[in-house]
Amino acid sequence: MGARAEGLSRLAKAATPTALGLFGVIALALPVRLFEGHLPMPVIPLAVVFFWSVYAPNYLPALSVFFVGLLQDLLSGGPLGLWPAVYLITQYIVLSQRFYFLGREQRVVWLGFALAAAGAGIILWLIMSLMSGVLLPIRSLALQMLATVAIYPAFGFAFSHLHRRVLVEA
């Protein structure tokens, strides 16, 4: 009994980042109109992908990232493969730079996230412009990424507590 419960809790812990990513996707699909739609919804899955790619990549394998992105495509009605590509490329870039971020101050990590969000935004804009055949206006995308970056410290704080206190602690 005890062993099984332990196994279950381990599984739950291992799956938490993935679940958070999926939750972020659901949040993006909900009709939340922050300040009457003047404030765009932050892309929470991007913060999830960034955080766990820096601090504990084992907890968020590429397959999870892929399916989080795919669900986002399915729910947003966009072309399939768009968000998986954006998240996976972000993950790749972050993984290649993660040793720079480990042990740094939160401010530095925040700056890193801002760069990652900017990169993700540029990839997104390039792909969508390519697919629609015109150079798309960049304003709403920039606002959304700004909102995501602005709210990242809160998520970073919450995620690091969750990770240290709950997920890693046996």
Partner: peptide, 8 residues
């Protein structure tokens, strides 16, 4: 539901 996306 709503797509709170920049493009869609």
């Amino acid at each position: 539901g709503e797509t709170n996306d920049a493009f869609a």
